[in-house]
Design a binder for these strands. Structure first.
Lengths: 185, 185
DNA sequence: CAGTTTGGTCAACGGCTGTTGACTTAGACG
DNA sequence: CGTCTAAGTCAACAGCCGTTGACCAAACTG
């Protein structure tokens, strides 16, 4: 039905599995997000998950692909780097379950940890290095602590005051922190 | 043997279970830390864990008791609050697995999440409120994002630059951040 | 029309888990 | 010594998990 998309008949199923998987991994973590539950959410048989994604690890690898899409900090007004980064991360995480999924899953899965390390070393590290060649690794690490700390408290722990933060509050409070970590001292 | 401690014979076993449990929960998270593995580490039978702690949840509840032992911020020189807090948290976490255990476990266990929320609402919230009655909930939330972000990156994700931070670096970089979050703006 | 590929279902397997109850040993006490 | 109790062992249960292979149905191809 509705061949309008032009894809093969199974593409809908693949997509349904992926959507259900992202939600389950983000909500329950890697271990508790069972293939049976994901398949049930997608309205199909668990065996289909194996057919299309090989095994649970393969499904997770596809479901938890994460691109922070960081802006080019070097192209910004130097004084606006911190605020821009804070706003960007806020926007990015508000509509993508992938990071929460990786945080929840990585906490108890060594492979996911490796990928998270690589993502932050590469994406955050290079973004920071582009504007501050002085000890970029330390600065990127500092940025990671504050950025991931926000994500942890807001989306995983769901601490009430942090859940209630508006975009403006995040920019106003965390922006200066990022600014100092990246170009300060 | 060695009745020097004066405790009952079973106290050694209880303590061995607890020690093994803390390490396993911190290293593997709640789901992957199996009672069988904990019992093996402690050199006893899995059934003993049930006898002494009822069930897995009961064991975790005892193993993951967490007291941040925050200093009385009001008794400090107001300008030293941030640095003192940064140094204290660093010291506290370097020699207590409990927080890492709760972070790893809480990520996939609703009850643990409740306890983490309560701990930070009460301990961090009241410490902050003691020195800054102006919107203490928001300020405590901000402190939590930076503090837990450091713990996450250093002990769970083990991001290389963050793992390499010295106490002096943590105080120098995070101290001013805490200072601004607690008494700034 | 027949035949072959694709999409999907079903029941089952082996393995690991938390948990239980019956059994055996060691210590304390009279 | 005998007795009673606490401490510890052992084997097993039921349940859930990821994964598999045999089977069925639909749809495209000639």
């Amino acid at each position: 039905m509705t061949a309008a998309t032009g894809g093969r008949r199974s593409d809908r199923t693949r997509a349904a599995i992926l959507t259900a998987a992202r939600e389950r991994f983000a909500a329950d973590g890697y271990e508790k997000a069972t293939i049976r539950a994901i398949a049930a959410d997608a309205g199909i048989d668990p065996a289909m998950v194996m057919r299309y994604y090989g095994n649970k690890e393969g499904l997770f690898a596809v479901a938890a692909q994460l691109d922070l899409r960081l802006p080019d900090l070097a192209a910004l007004d130097r004084a606006a780097i911190g605020d821009t980064l804070a706003g960007h991360l806020f926007d990015r995480w508000e509509d993508d379950d992938a990071l929460v999924a990786m945080l929840r899953a990585g906490v108890s899965n060594a492979d996911v940890l490796d990928r998270l390390r690589e993502i932050f070393a590469r994406q955050v590290g290079s973004a920071v290095a582009a504007v501050c060649p002085d000890d970029p690794a330390t600065r990127a690490g500092l940025v990671a602590t504050q950025a991931l700390g926000l994500a942890l408290c807001r989306y995983v722990l769901r601490l009430p005051p942090v859940v209630g933060f508006t975009r403006e509050q995040v920019v106003a409070w965390l922006g200066p922190t990022f600014q100092r970590y990246i170009v300060g001292n």
